[in-house]
Amino acid sequence: MEVENNSANHGNGEVGPEGAIQHYLAGLSDHRTLSFFHYKIIDLPVIVYDDGLHIYKDINSMEQAGLFTECEHKIVHKDNPAQGVAFDASITSLVCFEWIAMIIGVVLFSLAGRKYKKGTVKAPSGLQNLLESVVSFVRNQIVIPNIPGRAGHKLQHYFYALFFFILIMNLVGLLPGGHAATGSIATTLALAITSFLVINITAMKESGVGTWFKHLLGGAPWWLFFIMIPIEFISLFTKPFALTIRLFANMTAGHVVLLSLTGLIIYLQSYLMAPVSVGFSIFMLALELLVAFLQAYIFTILTAVFTGIAIGDHAEHAEHAN
């Protein structure tokens, strides 16, 4: 948790309890530098699109260039601070943590995959065993039971990637100095957009565009169409929206509870509170570990279930016919 560890250089009594807690809350959000505890590792580039692409090495060189300035974590025009930029695509600390999660995933799987490339028929062991058990769990418990027919076999790689990416991002958030990239709504929204595309494109491919449109009618009699079509159309978008909010809120809620428990010490300004806070924090961190796995599982299984529903009866009939 990055938040807990920023106290070293700020808890020196200059700010009151409320100020310190405000500071911790800011630690939950995105940063423009990548830091390990309070040691700054690198400044991150600022990329701004606003009547042309502007790229700066870091936030200070952006300030010096004189076009834009930072105000309450938002980049605004220097001459008109009320107006924000059109599009802020900066590489922030959460983007870095996302990349770190990607690198960890790629390294883990290429290490495990090397053994398969050698073609030995020995029983798997070590890392290979660990990953293989999780991969087969995803296939046998999540993908195959929920997505009927050949679509399940074709889509399984997407679900492995989804599950492990979310899981590793969540677990990076539990490392000391780490930050869960899934605690940002932008990350979870991007993941939900991929699942939205997978759900609908698979449905169109498997049961045809006509059936997909027929699905929008919901199988109701024609005089209900003026109610059914808007409801089904909205439900297309509420599914990925719920996925977005669920993952984001679960990851953020864990951080906020930990922050509140730590904040009790500062707020009550008493050493007696420390054992209580630490005890509850350990319990919450154990719970966060469970939540990290559970949320990766829930995001993946819900995407699989929605895909199965979107494909609908058509594919099932085809399977029975075979």
């Binding site: 719920a242 909010i245 809120a249 809620a253």
Partner: peptide
């Protein structure tokens, strides 16, 4: 268990909308 988790995730989703 799978069905229970799916349904509880849907309930939780609605509650999270309210919390957001």
């Amino acid at each position: 268990q799978t069905m229970m988790i799916i349904a509880s995730a849907l309930i939780e989703g609605v509650a999270l909308f309210a919390c957001v």
